[in-house]
Simulated scan of single mutants.
Amino acid sequence: MNLLEYQKGLENREIKPLNIVQSEDEYVLKTFTDKLSSLYEVKLLWGDELERKSFFSMLTEGEMFTRKKKVFVVKKGEEFLKSVKDGAYFVSLAKKLNKVSVFFVISEKINKSQLEKEPLKTILSIGDFLEAKSPDKRKVRELVKSRFVKEGRDIDESALEYLLEITSYNLVELKNEVDKLLLYKEGKITLEDVKSVCFSSAEYTIFDFINAFYTKDMEKSLVYLSSLLKSGISPLQIQAILINYSIRLFVASTSARDQTDKDKIFTELSLNNPYLRHSFKIYMEKFTAMEVKNLILKLHTLDIAEKVYFADPQESLKNFVIEYLRYAGS
């Protein structure tokens, strides 16, 4: 069964104790795991780290103290299954599991003859065989288009087609690139925007510069900025992203007290991408709330200098980066 179909109505489905997932698409698998996590207590394990003797106790640890069903997702499941080829072991294991289910995720392609060999043959007599297949191109296009609509943004058809082609319709890559585009600028997204942000003709991308700036690396910031400006990226667009990041960083720095707070604030700030969350945690360690406040004021001053007093945007932005990072590093 296709994993996308399996997860429909998952809350009403009786999940079998042992199951096999053949993973062809990491994004589909992640979507499934997220769905599981919204319903049950989910724990991720790695097959190459598991041992036959301790596996059962690991699955049932704390079982008598919880009423919620527990689900274990075992990545690199093939490694554990190779070490335990005894079908009787899995029959015995399934009988002992009460409020626990296991999904063994196998990244290798499985053919029909392999399904008829142990231990897969026995496991599939107990549980389900699910395939995390990539959606067809038409479905992927609809998913990407709906993401822009959900965010209240419009994208040119030529830009959308180009984005799909350069990512080869890979949902994991598409999610990252769409997140970048949504942060890049306001208004309609054009083909030029996609080329600039996703696969820029510059040696570096705008997000290389952003990461260098918010980790206070002046040398890299200037190298990346120079490359971007030479490739034709507008300094005003770069400033817009700096302002966007700075405001979010200030809100996060002044609102979050602990890790739980951080995750809640990140969600409220639409920082849902794992890479962005990780980056912002690093930025929060590099910048104090007072430094970020000062940064916002200086960016505001820079904006006035350019728009009111007609200061040259390229030179002004370069000077701003040098002066601010010199101040921040002192």
Rank of each mutant, 00 (worst) to 15 (best):
136 D>E: 08
113 S>M: 10
325 L>A: 01
152 G>R: 07
99 K>Y: 11
257 R>L: 14
173 E>L: 12
125 S>H: 07
172 V>N: 12
117 K>W: 09
151 E>Q: 10
30 K>Y: 14
122 T>S: 07
321 V>P: 05
199 F>Q: 15
78 E>Q: 15
170 N>K: 12
187 G>E: 04
216 K>D: 07
45 L>I: 06
27 Y>H: 12
166 I>M: 00
226 S>W: 02
102 V>P: 10
239 Q>P: 07
48 D>P: 11
242 L>Y: 00
230 K>S: 06
32 F>L: 05
191 L>C: 01
150 K>W: 06
188 K>M: 12
76 K>T: 04
246 S>A: 09
238 I>T: 03
33 T>F: 11
72 F>P: 06
68 K>L: 02
330 S>Y: 09
32 F>Y: 15
7 Q>F: 15
170 N>R: 09
264 K>P: 03
3 L>E: 09
98 N>Y: 08
282 I>E: 09
305 A>R: 15
283 Y>L: 12
116 E>H: 07
10 L>H: 13
166 I>N: 00
329 G>P: 08
328 A>H: 09
82 K>L: 14
116 E>V: 06
232 G>Q: 03
3 L>T: 11
139 K>H: 10
95 K>F: 01
50 L>V: 04
158 S>K: 12
305 A>C: 11
274 P>E: 03
89 Y>H: 07
164 L>K: 01
312 D>T: 13
263 D>L: 15
229 L>F: 00
51 E>N: 14
91 V>T: 11
134 S>R: 15
157 E>N: 00
61 E>K: 13
131 E>P: 04
311 A>P: 04
39 L>D: 01
322 I>T: 10
281 K>Y: 07
198 C>N: 02
89 Y>L: 08
233 I>S: 00
77 G>T: 07
49 E>Q: 15
316 S>H: 03
119 P>Y: 09
234 S>A: 11
79 E>P: 03
181 L>W: 03
95 K>M: 00
161 E>S: 04
110 I>R: 02
107 S>A: 10
35 K>V: 08
284 M>P: 01
87 G>T: 12
266 F>P: 03
173 E>T: 10
37 S>I: 08
319 N>Q: 08
49 E>F: 11
278 H>F: 12
10 L>M: 14
131 E>L: 14
239 Q>C: 10
189 I>C: 08
256 A>W: 02
171 L>P: 04
234 S>R: 15
281 K>L: 12
205 T>V: 11
206 I>G: 06
243 I>Y: 07
129 F>M: 02
39 L>E: 09
314 Q>F: 08
65 F>M: 14
120 L>G: 12
112 K>C: 00
23 S>V: 13
88 A>W: 03
153 R>L: 07
325 L>K: 03
93 L>D: 05
323 E>D: 15
4 L>K: 15
233 I>G: 02
315 E>N: 14
97 L>C: 05
146 S>Q: 11
93 L>W: 05
21 V>S: 08
213 F>E: 02
136 D>R: 05
127 G>K: 05
157 E>P: 00
15 I>H: 06
67 R>S: 12
123 I>F: 09
57 S>R: 09
188 K>T: 03
42 V>C: 02
143 L>T: 02
61 E>N: 04
147 R>V: 08
140 V>E: 07
133 K>D: 03
20 I>W: 05
265 I>T: 04
262 K>I: 04
264 K>Q: 09
68 K>S: 03
305 A>K: 15
88 A>V: 04
91 V>R: 15
125 S>C: 10
107 S>L: 09
324 Y>A: 00
118 E>C: 11
59 L>Y: 01
